[in-house]
């Protein structure tokens, strides 16, 4: 192959890509070889970390489920309906993505000190509770799920729904019988992305739900708690476990055919 200008351009771009991936491989490689598999297993078997793992799996699943329940109607509305101020609403839906995580936690904490917040807490206590972990994960994960569902519905033609309307459907029935079955892969992707996002959530949980061992401690909190007491080996083991979970989610999303 002759190295003409076009080939040189592709070669340069490929080098940038390979360089970036190599950097990540080195990062993960260094972390993975920091300690031995035996010591990882020992750490992962400790009651505190088993509790944090169980709590993470449960809260992430709940947060992702709630995020999907919100993302489907919001994504559908934002794709299928044209209205004044839509671009502003669109931007507003992305706010949780760009807000610093600690600020999200602080907003939650302050909201539940207001009158409305206190009334809500009389029914379901959130602050420094497990339900608070779910809420803190949900508020950020929902924004990502909405983005995914919006993209999914944008890629689906609205024509079948139009035809369903002429065949006797209400708009809700067209959504239920036609749009949702067509969007099922996008829904799986939105759930996985929300789940993965919830798994990595740390700042809002720390501020709003706290980091109490065997109570509101989730995996990212464990990494922080272990680091703060100088137990680097435990922090590494939990981090690698989280990397493994993240890879599994990525594989699941790719298997649905959706782009992340």
């Amino acid at each position: 192959m002759r190295l003409n200008r076009s080939n040189f351009c592709w070669l340069a771009l490929a080098l940038v890509t390979v360089g970036y991936l190599t950097f990540w491989a080195l990062l993960l490689g260094a972390t993975a070889t920091y300690s031995t598999p035996d010591s990882w297993l020992q750490v992962l078997r400790s009651p505190e970390i088993r509790h944090a793992t169980f709590l993470s799996l449960v809260t992430c699943s709940l947060a992702a489920g709630f995020a999907l329940l919100l993302a489907v109607p919001v994504g559908y509305l934002m794709t299928r309906l044209e209205f004044r101020g839509k671009s502003w609403l669109d931007a507003a839906l992305d706010i949780p993505i760009i807000l610093p995580p600690l600020v999200v936690g602080l907003c939650l904490l302050i909201f539940f000190q207001t009158k409305i917040g206190k009334v809500i807490e009389m029914a379901i206590p959130f602050t420094y509770q497990v339900s608070g972990v779910v809420l803190a994960q949900f508020v950020v994960a929902a924004a990502f799920a909405i983005r995914t569902m919006r993209g999914t519905f944008q890629h689906l033609s609205s024509r079948p729904e139009d035809v369903a309307l002429t065949l006797g459907c209400t708009r809700f029935q067209a959504l239920w019988h036609v749009a949702l079955p067509a969007a099922r892969r996008g829904m799986v992707a939105a759930f996985c992305i929300a789940w993965a996002r919830s798994l990595g959530e740390f700042g809002p949980i720390l501020v709003f739900a706290g980091a109490t061992r065997m109570k509101t401690e989730v995996l990212p909190t464990t990494v922080w708690l272990e680091l703060s007491v100088g137990n680097l080996e435990a922090a590494v083991a939990v981090s690698l476990f989280m990397v493994l979970l993240a890879v599994l989610v990525l594989v699941a999303v790719r298997a649905t055919g959706e782009k992340v």
Binding site: S157, R159, P160, D162, V163, A164, H177, V178, P181, A182, R184
Partner: peptide, 8 residues
């Protein structure tokens, strides 16, 4: 485009 319902 006939708009058959996907998945049905």
């Amino acid at each position: 485009d006939l708009a058959l319902f996907p998945g049905l």
